[in-house]
Design a protein around this nucleic acid. Structure first.
Length: 401
RNA sequence: GCGUCGGUGGCGGAGUGGUCAAUCGCACUAGACUGUAAAUCUGGCGCCUUCGGGCUUCGAAGGUUCGAAUCCUUCCCGGCGCA
């Protein structure tokens, strides 16, 4: 039997977008949904009770990080990650594929998940001028060797190993091991990396299906292919030909390529299975994704930004560290219904932030997660109500990037 | 009063003849952040600037020197010790 069930309630007319829900062994996720990121088994600065208070329905943890510390066997001995972290709702784990990128090609460089191709320094293939900074991840044929960023120890992760770890962690939805590539890579490299991701996808799936965990844990295959139309389509076709329970759309994007990549892929992926746009989550990108048939998003932005003082408002992100908030008696956003906005002033948050109090991170993360999660919930409702386009226009006209 | 050590940019604190508008923290200020190497990182932080540079600074005033935050003299202020 299938570990998850995906139901589409309504579709956007003339578009790929849809609203529905996803049943998992630990509860329902209403889609489209924003997944809060809890890499090391904790959404930084928040207790599970506080996570729930933001409206979050699902959390995404990370295979690589938890394997290194405290170890997947350890977590298994505590009854799995749900119990270990006291999150009893739907849980996902990423495969460690992103760390192939962040600790590999992107390590020590000015390369991020979303880059601007207008930055000329990034147009130089990072593969051509190696040497200065040693990578922590090196790609081999069958897997990736990682040098632990914690203690320097060496670890080799294969698709099978990634799935084995994810079985021990026990999340409801797990991901195939993939290679996230940079958009600055040449076509030849993208093609080579894609072949590898496809081989790894097949191996991930075969290993998963050979274990009883496949009864209780869903496995999503990941589409890659960089910014190349031919590769994206080839990947979407290949990954959908395999018996995955759902799909991830991966890759580091040039901002201007994101929409086309999502479109190319979602036009091909079978519509009856859920799609997760990996690591994307700024407001304008969420609208783009929802409109183009993405059901799930995750992003570190709300929690990471909060820790750095960035807070979402309906008119754009503000920096709580700025001098103009010191004397403000206003909430972050008058229209926000989160507990931070209901109970605290910008002046107080400014004080907490300036004095490096940890409550600044907590209150900021509650607000940011609430803001983004609710933004996607409103998009979902707008699809159901048939006014998505109006809602999108209204929001984006006020929101300044 | 005598002796002694010290007075550097908002603060702490380097520097002890040129490469010093002055290392470094902190504070301040602005920016970045998209499957978390991230409670992180990057700029700016005397004044002016056509961004080449120009101008005024290291308790105060004199002096030595081609050149002084750095050496000398006197004064002012502070710590400590002895009376």
């Amino acid at each position: 039997m299938n570990p998850i069930k995906f139901i589409i309630e309504k579709e956007l007319e003339g578009e790929l977008g849809r609203a529905g829900f996803l049943e998992t062994p630990h509860g329902i996720i209403n889609t489209p949904a924003f997944v809060s990121v809890g890499t090391k088994g904790t959404v930084k600065a928040l207790t599970p009770e506080q996570i729930i208070s933001t409206g979050a329905e699902v959390v995404l943890a990370n295979t690589y990080h938890l394997y290194l510390q405290p170890g997947d066997e350890k977590i298994k001995s505590f009854g799995g990650l749900h119990k270990f972290m006291n999150w009893h709702g739907p849980l996902m784990t990423d495969s460690g594929g992103y760390q192939v990128f962040s600790l590999g090609a992107a390590y020590g460089k000015n390369l991020n998940k979303v880059v601007s191709i207008t930055d000329p320094s990034l147009l130089i293939s990072e593969r051509s001028n190696e040497g200065d900074i040693p990578r922590l991840a090196t790609i081999g044929t069958d897997g990736v060797s990682f040098r632990s960023h914690i203690d320097g120890s060496l670890h080799y992760i294969t698709p099978e190993k990634s799935i084995e770890i994810q079985h021990n962690l026990g999340a409801d939805i797990i991901f195939a091991f993939d290679e996230c590539t940079s958009p600055t890579e040449k076509f030849e490299y993208q093609e080579e990396a894609l072949d590898r991701t496809h081989r790894w996808a097949k191996k991930s799936l075969e290993y998963h299906k050979s274990k009883p965990n496949s009864e209780s844990q869903a496995l999503f295959g990941i589409v890659q292919g960089g910014r190349e139309e031919s590769l994206r389509k080839k990947s979407a076709e290949y990954i959908s030909s395999l018996d995955f329970d759902g799909f991830g759309i991966g890759g580091s994007f040039a901002k201007e390529d994101m929409e086309t990549a999502v479109k190319w892929v979602n036009e091909i992926l079978p519509k009856e299975k859920p799609r997760h746009l990996l690591g994307i989550g700024e407001p304008e990108d969420l609208f783009m994704g929802v409109e183009n048939g993405v059901d799930l998003f995750d992003c570190v932005a709300p929690t990471r930004r909060a820790r750095g003082g960035g807070l979402y408002t309906n008119s754009g992100v503000i920096n709580i560290g700025n001098a103009r908030f010191v004397d403000s008696h206003e909430p972050i956003d008058r229209e926000c219904g989160c507990s931070t906005c209901k109970n605290y002033t910008l002046g107080y948050l400014s004080h907490l932030y300036r004095s490096h109090e940890m409550l600044a991170s907590t209150l900021g993360s509650i607000h940011n997660l609430y803001f983004i999660i609710n933004l996607v919930k409103k998009m979902r409702q707008a699809i159901l109500d048939g006014n998505f386009e109006e809602y999108k226009k209204d929001f984006l006209s006020k929101y300044k990037k």
